[in-house]
Design a protein around this nucleic acid. Structure first.
Lengths: 214, 214
DNA sequence: AACACCTTGTTACTTGCGGTAACAAGAGTC
DNA sequence: GACTCTTGTTACCGCAAGTAACAAGGTGTT
C-alpha cells in the first residue's frame, strides 16, 4: 500500500463521485427535487447502495449537490461585489447578478431554495429547510464581510455589517422569489426599486393624505 | 335533515377539527415537524383515517395548523403596522413585534419556517417550502398594502410598494432567522440596526480607507 | 500458485410513512 | 324496522430510505 496508489485510488473515487453528482443533477433538474435515490442511481447506471457508500445518506447527496451550485453562485456574486465601482453601481450589479442567475436557471434555484415544490404530488423528497438556509447564511456572511471591509461604519461596525449583510440578502432573496413567481416587472426595474429601498427612499417619502398622524 | 341539525353537526365537526388541530399542535411542538400522522392521531386519541377525513392529506393538516399561527402573527403585526405614530416608530415597533413573536415561540417559528429541521434524523416530515412561502408572501402583500396606502410614492406606486413590501419582509425574516440562531445582540439593537438600514444609513456611510476606487 | 484484502457492484430485505379500502357501531329519521 | 350519516376501527397497499449479505475483479504478499 504505497502512497501513489492510495492517491490514485482516491482520485478515481473523486472522479466517480463527480460523475454520480452530475447524474444526480440531471435527474433532479428533470424530475424535480422529489427524485428518488433509485432514480438517481438508475440514471448513473448503478444501484442504490453505491450512492449510500459515497454520500452516506440522502442529505449527504443533497449537500454535495447544493454545494456545487452554491459555490458557483457565490463566485459570480463575489465578482460583482468586488468590482471597483461606486457603491450604488456595485449594489445594483450584485442584485442583477443574483436575479439573472435565478432567472436563468429557475430549476436550480427552486431546488436550492424550495426543494419540496414543483414535482408530482406525494413528494417527500429532499429535506429543504436544512439546506436552503446554509446558502443564505453563507451569502449573508459574505456580504457582511464585504460591508465591513469597505464601508466606514462607526463603532460596532462588525455587528452592524452582519445585521445588514443578512438583512440585505434576505431582502434580495424574498423579493427575487416573489418576482420569479409573478414576474410583475422587468429585472432592471426590480433592481432599481430594491436599490432605492436601500438608499432610504422609503424613509424620505412623504406621508399620504392626512399627515403624519393618520 | 332540517337546517338546525345540519348546523349543529357542522359546529360539532368544527369543534372536533379544532380539537384535532390542538392535538396536532402539541405533537408537532413536542416531536418537531417530523411528527407522523400516526403520532398525531394517537395524541388525539384516535386513528389515522379520521385525520384524513378531516384534512384530506398531510398538507391539509399542515395548512390548517400553519394558518392558525399565521393568522395570529399577522393580527399582531397589523396592530403594530396600523398604529397612529411616526413612520420610524411604526417600522420599529413592527420589527420588534415580529422578533418578539419568534423569540417567544421559537418552536412555532421553526415549524412554520423550517419544518424539516430540529427532529430526529430520518425526517421526511411535512413539506416545508410549499407552506413557509405563503406566510412570507402574505406578510409581504400585507405590508405592500400598508405602504401603498400610507406612503406617498410617485407614479408606479403600486409596483414599488409591492417590491418593497416583499423586500422588507424578507429582510426581517432573514435577519430574524440569523439572530434567533446566533443571538449576537439584543432585540432592541437588531431593531435599530434594521431600521437604520431602511433609513438609508448604508448609502450615507462613507467609504473606508482608500476612497471610492478601492 | 494460493492466500488475504480492498473496491465496486449486486440482489434482496427491513422499516416506516402516507394514504386508502372495507367494515362496525351508534344516533337520529321515515 | 329499514335508511342513512357520522365516527371510528383494522388491515392493507405502495413506495422510498436505508441496510445486510454476498459476488467478482484487481493487487500485493508468501
Amino acid at each position: 500500500m504505497d502512497t501513489t496508489e492510495r492517491t490514485e485510488q482516491a482520485l478515481a473515487a473523486e472522479r466517480r463521485k463527480r460523475e454520480l453528482l452530475e447524474a444526480a443533477d440531471r435527474v433532479v433538474l428533470r424530475d424535480g427535487p422529489g427524485a428518488s435515490m433509485n432514480a438517481i442511481a438508475a440514471e448513473a447506471g448503478i444501484t442504490k447502495p453505491i450512492l449510500y457508500r459515497h454520500f452516506g445518506d440522502k442529505g449527504g447527496l443533497y449537500a454535495a449537490l447544493a454545494k456545487r451550485h452554491t459555490d458557483a453562485l457565490l463566485a459570480s456574486l463575489r465578482a460583482a461585489l468586488d468590482a471597483p465601482s461606486e457603491r450604488r453601481a456595485r449594489v445594483e450589479s450584485t442584485l442583477d447578478t443574483y436575479l439573472a442567475a435565478i432567472e436563468g436557471a429557475p430549476q436550480v434555484y427552486r431546488f436550492l431554495m424550495h426543494p419540496a415544490e414543483s414535482a408530482s404530488p406525494g413528494e417527500q423528497g429532499f429535506d429543504v429547510g436544512r439546506h436552503s438556509a446554509p446558502l443564505l447564511r453563507r451569502l449573508g456572511e459574505e456580504l457582511a464581510q464585504v460591508i465591513a471591509e469597505r464601508v466606514d461604519l462607526g463603532s460596532d461596525s462588525e455587528r452592524l455589517a452582519r445585521v445588514w449583510g443578512h438583512g440585505i440578502v434576505g431582502m434580495m432573496h424574498a423579493a427575487g422569489d416573489w418576482w420569479l413567481g409573478e414576474r410583475p416587472c422587468s429585472r432592471a426595474e426590480l433592481v432599481r426599486d430594491l436599490a432605492d429601498l436601500l438608499w432610504g427612499r422609503l424613509a424620505a417619502a412623504g406621508d399620504r393624505e392626512g399627515g403624519p398622524g393618520f
